[in-house]
Design a protein around this nucleic acid. Structure first.
Length: 695
RNA sequence: UGGGGUGUCGUCAAGCGGUAAGACACGGGCCUUUGGAGUCCGCAUUCGGAGGUUCGAAUCCUCCCACCCCAGCCA
């Protein structure tokens, strides 16, 4: 029942308009970036929306238009990058590349019309005065003393503004609407300001520049846009958009707003992105950690994956935060089908196969892509000394570890079964190299006797390996929503220091020496990688990790570590070594933002000991919800007879994720503290009822 | 305390008065020469809350609550 006949609200509106025969059946959209920064994945959503909608309709078109109305912020560099990115995503504006600045003369003339109609006036007030007299959210503004100038005087002044007779800020042209309007945007908004700044296209032809609200509708109107799609924050501006167009009596497109994209573990604001670039937290707009189109491209993302992602996230009006895991899913899905498989050892561990003849080399067949047999096979050299991944050997393997360990047999992919016979230690007790024997009968990786091994490892022949630098990229921030940080300083402290890990001395199979910059491959078992387009040099390859493969073992191991931790100090065994980098193991309390803690008054109705837990007591708390909440609290030490807690008023953190404990679900947390010498619950004296907010 | 929006699974998101799609994530099984891929199963008795209308409500009405945006001569 659910095929793709459901669609987003914007397409529905367009379909209805078409049905009602508006715009003579035309569908014209536009993507209108301001050239003051690089495009990011959020823009991709808008680009896909606008261009795809046009493509979906017979004769539909989408223009690329630079909204270059503010010369002090805009640069040619950005124009070029934006054009490149839109093209790379696979969209074509054909010959319809426009600039707001192309319409400056027309806008000027329209402004004159409004002045003549008594709908606009030149105001001599300073920016400060205008701000002060705009009123507030709840109080109306005050009309400017210059508001009732005559038409002739206004026309004269406006002409002289253009002629350059006044300095920056001396005068503005304002629309004469209503200083008491509840919508602030309608309180005589500024249409033109004086800016003695050269424009990157019109150069010094103009010293007055139109404001967005005045300009945008005119641009849309001139281009015959039918549906002007923009983001939610412009919803308040729509009445103004409509007002200008109605006053002018010109063709009037329909503005529709949708929610911009937010992606977890990154930021999307141009200002923040620019900050990262300027402060050197990243190497540039195209740093592979950046959510920019150019960064994603350099990271190894494909246009197909990004477009598919934009399809999957949908279009709606509610503020949302899309999980980075979805983007990662999209790129894996795409690359799984097309990326050739190769072997690369990122953190090499030397393996000597003692019973393999010295100086002997074999060429073994390897499948290029199991998902696409048409991709063929290749030869990889095998010899007595090879490298495997350090992570693929453990002297003391934990449970469920399928890889190599002393005495264990594993398969080397496309090669032989090998059995570990010895470990050579370095000075610090580290594993310097290992020794193995191989079974010649298992050539190619199959045992004729049918015996099985649990693990299959990738490897590279030491004598044939290519030395390379590999850059491991990860999420830019350590928290889901870095933009929610209270201030700039701690937003910067949220940058993930491990978002880039540079590995040198990585060992690649020989064929990898020949791939071209920009080529995408899968390093078997490690992830998808792209040959870096900027730093790769002949003879010294650099690869960027796009995304890891899904890693079931990492998940198991993480769970093991967690279990170890929660067993606490009594088990004294060292936790198994984490597979890759330090994982923040924070499981006690799960709440995104402590400022959002929901502290409520509660009354303990039942309390008792917990069998098999010497620190816990179980309480049932009344939060005025019509049912009692079960909470486990580690305060038995202070209340050996928990029954005495019954009837006590306590403070409960009510919006924690319920936590499944061995004994049952714990639905909150009771505030308790260690006083001078004793632990106790925090209580209060006030007249609060169960469920009342305390915070 | 003004105006404009939005609230459906952990995260996105369908649904438009006929009894809660799908995707990601998560958990489990099968399969496997990538612990990859694939595949199968599970995952909202309930739609911010409370009332009301109706045979029937996520969908209609009323009130309430929460969150987002707006006081640039930025876009």
């Amino acid at each position: 029942m659910t095929t793709n006949d459901s669609t987003d609200f914007i397409r529905s509106i367009i379909a209805e308009d078409l049905k009602a025969n508006k715009n003579d059946g035309r569908v014209v959209t536009r993507f209108p970036p301001e050239p003051n920064g690089y495009l990011h994945i959020g823009h991709a959503k808008s680009i896909c929306l606008n261009f795809s909608i046009a493509e979906e309709h017979e004769g539909g078109i989408c223009n690329l238009r630079f909204d270059d109305t503010n010369p002090s912020k805009e640069e040619i560099e950005y124009i070029e990058s934006i054009k490149e990115d839109v093209k790379w995503l696979g969209f074509d504006w054909q010959d319809r590349l426009y600039y707001a600045s192309d319409y400056f003369e027309q806008m000027y003339e329209y402004a004159g019309q409004l002045i003549k109609a008594g709908a606009a006036y030149v105001d001599d007030q300073s920016a400060d005065q205008i701000r002060l007299t705009r009123g507030t959210l709840t109080e109306p503004g005050i009309e400017s003393p210059f508001r009732d100038r005559g038409v002739e005087e206004n026309m004269d002044l406006f002409r002289r503004m253009r002629a350059g007779e006044f300095p920056n800020g001396a005068k503005v042209l304002r629309a004469k609407i209503n200083m008491s309007h509840p919508n602030l945007n309608m309180r005589d908004p500024v249409m033109y300001r004086i800016l003695h700044t050269a424009h990157h296209r019109t150069e010094d032809k103009w010293c007055i520049y139109p404001m967005y609200d005045w300009a945008h509708g005119i641009e849309d109107s001139i281009e015959g846009i039918t549906h002007s799609i923009c983001t939610l924050e412009f919803e308040d501006h729509r009445p103004l958009y409509d007002w200008f167009l109605d006053r002018l009596g010109v063709y009037h497109p329909r503005q529709i707003e949708f929610a911009r994209l937010n992606l977890s573990y990154t930021v999307m604001s141009k200002r923040k992105l620019l900050g990262l670039v300027k402060e050197g937290n990243v190497t540039g707009w195209d740093d592979p950690r950046m959510p920019t189109i150019s960064g994603l491209r350099r990271r190894g993302f494909t246009p197909e994956a990004i477009r598919n992602f934009c399809d999957k996230i949908g279009v709606a009006k509610r503020d949302s935060m899309v999980d980075m895991a979805l983007l990662e899913h999209c790129i894996r899905e795409d690359l799984n089908k097309r990326a050739p498989r190769m072997m690369a050892v990122l953190r090499p561990l030397k393996v000597v196969i003692d019973n393999y003849p010295d100086n002997h080399v074999e060429e073994l067949d390897a499948v290029n892509n199991p998902e696409d047999l048409g991709a063929g096979v290749r030869k990889v050299p095998f010899s007595r000394v090879i490298y495997i991944e350090q992570d693929d050997f453990r002297e003391d393997p934990p449970k469920k570890y399928y890889r190599l360990a002393p005495g264990r047999e594993v398969r080397l992919r496309y090669a032989y079964f090998i059995t570990c016979t010895g470990v050579v230690k370095g000075e610090k007790g580290d594993v310097a190299e290992i020794h193995c024997t191989y079974d010649p009968a298992t050539r190619g990786g199959d045992a004729p006797d049918g015996r099985k091994v649990q693990g299959t490892l990738h490897w590279v022949s030491a004598g044939h390996a290519i030395n390379a630098e590999v850059r491991l990229y990860d999420r830019l921030f350590t928290v889901e929503n870095p933009a929610a940080a209270k201030d700039e300083a701690d937003y910067r402290s949220l940058i993930n220091p491990d978002a880039l890990q540079v590995l040198r001395g990585c060992m690649l199979e020989p064929g990898l020496g020949a791939v071209k910059p920009g080529a995408i491959v899968q390093f078997e078992r490690m992830g998808y990688f792209v040959s870096d387009t900027v730093d790769t040099r002949p003879g010294s390859p650099v690869f960027n990790r796009t995304v890891t493969l899904k890693d079931t073992w990492a998940k198991i191991e993480k769970a093991q570590v967690r279990q170890q931790d929660s067993r606490g100090a009594k088990g004294k065994e060292k936790p198994v070594k984490p597979g890759s980098g330090p994982e923040p193991v924070v499981e006690e309390v799960t709440i995104d933002d402590f400022s959002k803690i929901d502290l409520r008054a509660g009354v303990i109705r039942e309390a008792g000991l917990v069998e098999g837990a010497n620190k816990l007591i179980r309480v049932m708390v009344d939060l005025g919800e019509g049912r009692l909440r079960q909470i486990f609290a580690g305060i038995r030490q202070a209340y050996p007879e928990p029954e005495k807690l019954v009837g006590k008023q306590v403070m409960v953190v009510a919006n924690l994720k319920p936590r499944q404990m061995k004994f049952g679900l714990s639905e909150g947390m009771i505030l308790a503290g260690a006083g001078k010498d004793k632990l106790g619950v925090a209580t209060f004296d006030g007249q609060l009822s169960p469920g009342d907010k305390v915070s």
